[in-house]
């Protein structure tokens, strides 16, 4: 039907799903990513962690092909992903699923049609078969019976779970998750975390998970990448990260406000800022 996902039987591409070299992405003067190297292995769960604004979403959008890098290389299953023709990109996309940070359900369609959307678009399965698949996917995320609801009638957490069901509807080889557990109650978050874990361990799917939930991230990861200000500051197995000696890594996983990673991103002195605008603060001798 479609060209195989792994086009070349070369030894390197069998274990490697995505490989990025020296990836840079600039928005105006802001460097969202600054020389990132990343290696996502097939069948593994790669977790990308980092503080707010560290470039996690940007990295995910680049490796999903939603945006082009300013410079650097991306290789997806052995193919050049930066200069890929649109037609081939869409062929590869049928083997990708993505859960967006804010769900991104199509708001003109109900839950059933959202989950069935990729199946309707890309398969000619009978509606009966599609119904069965959708029911199974919704059961997996605990929302069976909600088929008739519209996205506007869902809570944020429910929408996220529908988005997850939609992302796995086509049984994709790789799934991208942007903050899959943020905005969920602890039980749903646990269920989703387990689900992501099961998808990769039991069905050998590749997952790329962006999260700032340190414990959940470390518990499902085969490989962890820690980003800070658009750069990779640490990577390795979850144990390597847990026992890392690096002060920045320690600060991040322990969630301490003081340390080498400044909480404030301002570059000017606080006192100068207050005093440089006459009328705001008066220092009396």
């Amino acid at each position: 039907m479609k060209a195989p996902l792994v086009s070349k039987p070369g030894a390197a591409s069998v274990s490697s799903m995505i490989r990025c070299a020296n990836l840079c992405k600039k928005y105006g003067d802001v460097a969202a990513l600054d020389g990132v190297n990343l290696h996502v292995r097939k069948g593994q769960t790669t977790v990308i962690m980092g503080g707010s604004g560290s470039g996690k979403t940007t990295l995910l959008r680049l490796i999903a092909g939603l945006e082009k890098p300013t410079s650097g290389e991306i290789e997806f299953a052995g193919e050049d992903f930066v200069h890929i023709p649109r037609k081939r990109l869409y062929e590869l996309r049928e083997m990708m699923g993505m859960v967006f940070q804010y769900s991104a359900l199509l708001n003109s369609l109900n839950v059933y049609d959202n989950v069935a959307f990729p199946l309707h678009e890309h398969t000619d399965l009978d509606e009966d078969v599609i119904r069965t698949i959708v029911t199974m996917k919704l059961e997996q995320v605990g929302l069976r019976g909600m088929e008739r609801l519209m996205p506007s009638e869902l809570s944020g957490g429910m929408a996220k779970r529908v988005a997850l069901a939609r992302a796995i509807a086509m049984d994709p080889a790789i799934v991208f998750y942007d903050e899959p557990t943020s905005g969920l109650d602890p039980i749903s978050a646990g269920v989703i975390t387990t689900l992501i874990h099961d998808l990769s361990t039991k069905s050998h799917r590749t997952s790329v998970v962006v999260t700032h939930d340190v414990q959940a991230g470390l518990s499902i990861a085969d490989h962890v990448v820690l980003l800070w200000q658009g750069r990779v500051i640490a990577e390795g197995g979850p144990e390597d990260i847990r026992h890392s000696e690096d002060e920045r890594v320690r600060q991040f996983i322990e969630g301490r406000p003081d340390g080498p990673i400044p909480f404030s991103r301002s570059t000017t002195s606080y006192l100068d800022d207050l005093l440089s605008h006459p009328g705001t603060v008066r220092m009396r001798p």
């Binding site: 959008r61 999903a64 939603l66 649109r86 869409y90 062929e91 996309r93 049928e94 990708m96 699923g97 993505m98 967006f100 940070q101 804010y102 991104a104 359900l105 199509l106 708001n107 959307f117 990729p118 678009e121 890309h122």
Partner: peptide
């Protein structure tokens, strides 16, 4: 515009729908 804000355009793109 709202489809852009809510990333529905990107979602279509990811589901291989131009």
């Amino acid at each position: 515009g709202i489809m852009r804000v809510t990333e529905q355009v990107d979602a279509l793109e990811m589901m291989a729908v131009n």
